[in-house]
Nucleic acid binder design. Structure first.
Ligand SMILES: [Mn+2]
Ligand SMILES: [Mn+2]
Ligand SMILES: [Zn+2]
Ligand SMILES: [Zn+2]
Lengths: 144, 144
DNA sequence: CCCGTAATGCAACTATGTTGCGTTATGAGA
DNA sequence: TCTCATAACGCAACATAGTTGCATTACGGG
């Protein structure tokens, strides 16, 4: 669990009851160094407490809706969930290994994106920019 | 169909037979202004010619493997397929509307990404960087 | 024309996510 | 403390996206 995050407070400030299920999901996601799939979250939570698969999905949807979590589509079959950027956790790009599929968080501030050229010609409203990096992780690089 | 692309030649240079199915899939993807889902590609191809869903998936996998197409994970439920960047088609970011889910290709060169900060600390090999922009499209912006 | 190989079709299956609906837990107010 | 409306939850069924196994067909080099 992230020591700087009070999950109960986060939930209540978002107007959500701090139910055991939500607390548990949030702790699992917040304590993991990389974003997790719904299946991984479900498995992990259920090692200490029974919580239905559908309930996990509904909790995740709710937390994403309240911008407590963010969902990432990184090329695997489904979405991955991680803490959304906030005062303690700056936005950062994500890396996916083309060989083993492993996902890593890259350091924040390591990437600078200049969207000026897009804003000049794009008529819509830009809200969020995600940078995804693909390649070979250190492990797979060694093994050829 | 992109007038600058000779799809038969592209396939043969990649060591792939230029079968009718592959030609057709490639023409459908290449002639569309935005990336398409496998289902949309299947539907479109089948308006003029019977081609099994599984075959479409296998063709897409093969074309992505040969870097003729690229697959994008833009937050919808599945992947979208478009022409991979090549001499005629520079890489460009993609936009997804948070309200209607519509996807648009943004102009190339409109975005500059500086990865120096990542390269300094990341031990793996970086092969590709994808920039995804989310927001409201011009249409949805008008309608509130 | 013959044959090995690659491509295709089809059915079944897996993984991921969603919906409907009945049950249970919670908390605000009487 | 009791009541009740609401929100959370569980479970079965369903939906969508993608994969696998295996038989059949098409193709191209001898
Ligand atoms: Mn992250
Ligand atoms: Mn594009
Ligand atoms: Zn790897
Ligand atoms: Zn829109």
């Amino acid at each position: 669990m992230c020591s700087r995050c009070n999950y109960r407070e986060i939930l209540e400030r978002a107007g959500l009851e701090a139910t055991p299920g939500r607390m548990h999901v949030l702790e699992v996601v917040g304590s993991h160094p990389a974003p997790l799939s719904a299946a991984e979250i479900h498995r992990t939570v259920n090692r200490s407490r029974a919580l239905d698969r559908v309930t996990v999905y509904r909790i995740l949807d709710r937390l994403v809706e309240k911008k407590i979590l963010q969902a990432l589509s990184l090329g695997g079959r489904g979405r991955l969930f991680g803490l959304a950027p906030n005062e303690h956790h700056p936005a950062h790009p994500h890396f996916r290994c083309a060989r083993c599929g492993g996902v890593q968080c890259l350091p924040p501030g390591g990437v600078r994106v200049d969207l000026a050229g897009v804003r000049r010609v794009f008529a819509g409203e830009i809200r969020r920019v995600e940078v995804q990096v693909e390649g070979l992780c250190a492990n797979c690089l060694q093994r050829g």
